Amino acid sequence: MGSKLQSGQRLRPVDLARPHGLSTQAVRNYEEAGILPAAERTPHGYRTYSSLHAAALRAFLALVPGHGRPTAAAIMRAVGEGAVDEALRLVDESHVQLRDDRRTLEAVERALRAPERGPAHEADGRRDQAAGFIGRLAAELGVRPATLRAWERAGLVSPRRDPRTGYRIYEEADARDARLAHQLRRGGYLLEQIAPLIARVREADGTEPLEAVLLDWRTRVSARGRAMLSGSAELEAYLRERG
């Protein structure tokens, strides 16, 4: 989306705002926030912009879908302050986060395909030891036993109780639910969002109900990746415009 503006052409706030469906106040706000370079002023005090400002606005708006508004603003402010390396570092961090999100998604998909494991028991007074299943499962997931109990209170796992001892007994489906809950938490899902998904998995006696969630998650990850490509292209165009 290269600019068709001539290098020395003067632009009004409305000229920048209209192509993007923005208000002129939004353009002024972006300038005041350091997202756009400072505007020149006419003898009567009116703002005038240039092709450089137009390129900056295109870059910012293109960065937002992939990096989020706060990071996109920080990138543009860093460029405006001449700290291009800092701007590129912020871009790199977003790519690392996207990579981690993709790995988490892949981990969830592996968890869905993994064979379920046999039941184990939680021994009272020894629940943090290796012999207690809650300790083993917590160690496997890299969480504290208290986290598994919190998940139980939230309805994410439902271990039965031994009628004789009252100890928790985690069956194969419980271990599966705990692994799914852990991976979905890593994917940014809240407990209240996970609980109904786990309930649907239990009702279906399988993980098919999560397929739509995974498809949506995968679609969002891919869309963010493509948005980052578009944002990088516009940012590079802006850097070239700045010289």
Rank of each mutant, 00 (worst) to 15 (best):
F60I: 07
T219R: 15
A38S: 10
E40V: 05
Q25I: 03
L184M: 15
R144I: 01
L90W: 02
R136E: 14
A38E: 13
D15E: 11
A111N: 05
A150G: 10
V79T: 12
T147C: 07
M1D: 08
E171V: 03
L61S: 10
S3M: 09
R69C: 00
R153V: 07
A107Y: 07
H121K: 10
G206D: 06
H95K: 15
R168N: 06
D174Y: 09
L180V: 10
L5F: 13
Y30T: 00
A26R: 12
P65K: 03
A154M: 03
V221P: 00
S7T: 14
R164V: 15
S7Y: 04
L5P: 02
P65V: 03
A83I: 01
D15A: 07
A54K: 01
G206N: 08
R102V: 08
L52Q: 11
E109C: 06
E86L: 13
A181S: 12
A223I: 04
T24F: 00
M228W: 01
A83L: 11
R160F: 10
M1V: 08
A223L: 11
S51N: 00
G135N: 06
D100E: 15
A130C: 01
R77K: 13
A87C: 09
L214V: 12
R226W: 14
I169D: 13
I134G: 15
H67V: 08
P115L: 06
Q9L: 11
P196R: 04
R77P: 09
S50Y: 03
L235R: 08
T219F: 09
R168T: 02
D100L: 13
K4R: 05
R186W: 03
L210M: 12
G142A: 10
E106H: 14
W151L: 10
R160G: 07
D174E: 10
A199N: 09
A59T: 11
L57N: 00
R164K: 10
A73E: 09
R103G: 14
R185W: 02
D100M: 14
E236P: 00
R77S: 05
P19E: 07
E234M: 07
G82M: 02
E31R: 06
V27I: 02
V221Y: 00
R168Y: 06
E40C: 02
V91C: 12
G166Y: 09
G66L: 12
P209E: 09
H121G: 13
F133L: 06
M228Q: 15
A204K: 07
L137H: 03
L235A: 07
M228K: 05
G118Y: 04
G243Y: 04
T219P: 00
G206V: 08
I35T: 01
P145I: 01
Y49R: 02
R12N: 02
R242T: 04
R127L: 03
P43N: 02
R47M: 03
D162R: 02
L52I: 14
L90S: 03
P163D: 15
L105P: 09
E31V: 02
A73N: 02
D216Y: 07
R102A: 15
E40Y: 12
A26F: 11
